[in-house]
Amino acid sequence: MNARRICEGRVVIVTGAGRGLGRAHALAYAAEGARVVVNDLGVGLDGTPGPDSPASRVADDIRAAGGEAVAHGGDIATTEGAVSLVRTALETYGRLDTLVNNAGFLRDRMLVNLDEDDWDAVVRVHLKGHFLPLKHAAAHWRAEAKAGRTPVARVVSTSSGAGLLGSVGQGNYSAAKAGIVGLTLVAAAELGRYGVQVNAIAPAARTRMTERTFAETMAAPDSGFDTMAPENVSPLVVWLGSAASAGVTGRVFEAEGGRITVMEGWRPGPTADRGARWTPAEAADAALKLLAEAEPPGPVYGAG
C-alpha cells in the first residue's frame, strides 16, 4: 500500500462522473486510494436520456487500474435517486466519507428567448441535484455523529465563474450556479457540528459543456501543458475531499490549468448612514458618491 495516497480507505460519491470533470475526479480519487461510487444518468447535453450510461465504463476503468468502484445510474435530482445514491455507498462499502456534487447540463438562451422549461430543467439538475444528495448524505453523517461516531466528512460542490460573475446567454445556468454557492455557505455553517466540511469549486476546463468555449485553447506555449484538461481541476477536488483538508470549510475556489484562486465573496464596501430616512434625491446623491469609491464589479462573461 502506498502510504502517501491521501484518500486511502475513504468512500467517495461523484455525481455526473461518466464524462468530463466528474470522470476525471472519480479516477483521481481512485488513484489516491478511495472506493468510488460513480454516478451518471447518461444523458445528452440537453438532459434527455442517451442510449446508455457511461458510469459503468468509468467504474470498469477504475477496477482495471486496481481500484474499487461501483456504478450508479439514478437521477440524483429526485429524492428516490439521491436516497439510492447514498444507500449504494453504504450497502456496498459500509460507509460514506465524501460527496462530490458535479452533475449538470446546459440549455443556453438569451433571457428573452429562455423558455420556462429550460429554466426549470437547468435549475433542477444543477441546484436540486446538489441539494438532494447533500441532504441525504448529511442526514447519514448527522446520525453517525449523534451515535458517537463523528465522521471526517467532506462535500465538494461545483459552481462556476458564471455563478460568480454571470454569463451572457446563461441566465438559468448562472442563477443555479450562484445558488450552489449560497447552499455551500449554509451547509458549511449548519453541518460543521457533525464533522462535515463543505466547499465549492468554480472550475474552468474543456468538457462537453464547454467544448465550444475552449475549442481553440490547447497547450500552453512551449510547455505541452493542456491548460483546459479536466484532470487539472481534480487534484484540488481530491484534497478538499480528503481528511488532509481539515479546517477548510465554507470556501469557494476557482481552478483552471495550473492556477488555484480563493474567491472572496460579497463584503461590505463603502457605506453612508445619515441616521434617518433618505429622500430619493438624497439617496441618489449618497449612492453615486459611494459608487465612486467602490471597486468596479468584474465583467460578466460574454459581455462587451
Rank of each mutant, 00 (worst) to 15 (best):
G47S: 06
P299R: 07
R109V: 07
G9M: 08
L291P: 00
A219N: 15
G224F: 12
T261W: 03
V58H: 10
S174L: 08
M1K: 01
A189H: 12
A162T: 03
G257W: 14
F214K: 13
N113Q: 05
R124E: 02
W266P: 14
I76R: 05
T217C: 08
V233M: 04
W266A: 08
E231W: 06
L85W: 08
V196M: 13
V237Q: 02
R57Q: 13
H25R: 03
R10I: 08
R277W: 03
A77I: 12
E190S: 11
T213Q: 15
S84E: 14
R87D: 15
L27T: 05
Q170W: 07
G9F: 08
E211G: 03
T98L: 01
I260E: 00
T210W: 08
R277M: 06
A272R: 12
A31S: 10
F214R: 12
N2T: 00
G163C: 05
Y29F: 15
T98Y: 02
A276T: 04
V181R: 03
G129H: 03
I180F: 05
V43K: 01
F105Y: 14
S223G: 02
A71V: 04
A147G: 12
G247D: 08
P49N: 06
M228T: 14
S245G: 06
R206P: 05
V198C: 11
R251D: 04
A284S: 05
A138M: 04
E190V: 10
T48S: 14
Y93H: 15
L114C: 00
T158K: 04
R212D: 15
T279K: 00
I201L: 11
P49S: 09
G20I: 09
N39W: 07
A244Y: 11
A65V: 09
A286E: 06
P235Y: 03
G302V: 03
V123F: 02
S56M: 03
N172R: 05
T78Q: 07
T261G: 02
H126K: 03
M263S: 06
N232W: 12
S84R: 14
V196Q: 09
M218P: 00
I260K: 00
P49A: 13
I13Y: 00
A292S: 06
A255R: 13
L185A: 09
V38T: 11
M110F: 10
R10N: 05
R212M: 15
E256A: 10
A71W: 11
H130G: 00
H140N: 02
D75P: 15
E264H: 10
A82C: 13
G250N: 05
D273T: 00
T48Y: 07
G148V: 04
N232R: 15
R277V: 02
P235D: 02
G66P: 08
T184L: 04
A153G: 07
Y93L: 10
A145H: 03
A147H: 02
V125K: 04
G192N: 12
Y194E: 12
D52A: 15
H130V: 15
V43S: 06
T217N: 09
Q197I: 02
V14C: 07
